[in-house]
Design a protein around this nucleic acid. Structure first.
Lengths: 148, 148
DNA sequence: GACATTTAGTTTGATATTAAACTATGCAGT
DNA sequence: ACTGCATAGTTTAATATCAAACTAAATGTC
């Protein structure tokens, strides 16, 4: 293996570890039984608006349909979302945020923010933001080449 | 939430998705029953030398001791590693690569490389490598602040 | 030296995730 | 209209992972 190959493995390794640490940090601050995956869905619906289908959410987070079924069913049991039938497609559903869901989203952010502020002194977030476009490019390419 | 906060969530989101896509890509190419986690351990031992303890591996990948016990036991069952008692500490063990393990590592890389080469035309790996130090910094900070 | 505390590894129970099979609906071509 | 293929979501079985309890060995304190 050449040098570049090693760096690439290292890159994926760093990404994996950052993901684990960040996930752990979030999970620790979410109430019993709720996971980053649940928060992420709520966050997505808040940012981009609800009324999405389960499949579009699965695709946004790159998880399988089965995973999204599971995530949404937990959110639904907790009444943080409401699943309505799709008005024009009998196979599909539409996901709506409930008031509880919106409230929970705000509370979750409030409980994570202190940790972020604590990190703020140590991480140059502006530099992190500079990384975003390149990460998005990599994500897009990986996504488009899932079958190779 | 302010703008920076949104970017930070976005950053963690991108990282999460890249991790999932990369993991999926690797897993698809590994033989039945073996996972990126197993390859990663072998890769680590190849890069930095074997003779490590399970705990040091757990810490290198930021997984729990229990997870590492599980990973190593699979590798051991397949005889890709050998677990020897620690010569001076009765509680501990030492992980050695077997010849099969080294062979498997090479084969795994050979089977992943074509996909990387395919991606090579689309991703500027040199730019990826430029991201490494900043990612490592973020990782280190997150790691050092796990308790906050 | 005895006892308390720390440390390395294992075990247990729970959960998120995946891949693949399955159900039901939509749609396209004939 | 019928038939066949595609699509949306669910279910199932297997696995990786975690947190927390547990075992056994080491270390430190008195």
């Amino acid at each position: 293996m050449d040098e570049t190959g090693k760096h690439v493995f290292q890159f994926f390794n760093e990404v994996g570890i950052i993901e684990q640490l960040a996930t752990a940090m979030f999970n620790k601050r979410l109430p019993e039984g709720l996971h980053v995956s649940h928060f992420s869905v709520l966050n997505h619906l808040m940012r981009l608006g609800d009324g999405k289908t389960p499949l579009s959410l699965a695709s946004a987070f790159q998880v399988t349909k089965g995973t999204m079924t599971n995530t949404l069913s937990t959110l639904s049991k907790r009444e943080l979302i409401r699943l309505a039938p799709h008005e024009s497609d009998g196979r599909s559903k539409i996901v709506f945020l409930t008031d509880q869901g919106r409230r929970f989203h705000k509370e979750a952010i409030d409980s994570v923010m202190p940790a972020m502020i604590a990190l703020d002194e140590k991480i140059d977030w502006s530099k992190v933001i500079e990384l975003l476009p390149e990460l998005q490019r990599i994500r897009t390419v990986l996504d488009a080449n899932r079958d190779i």
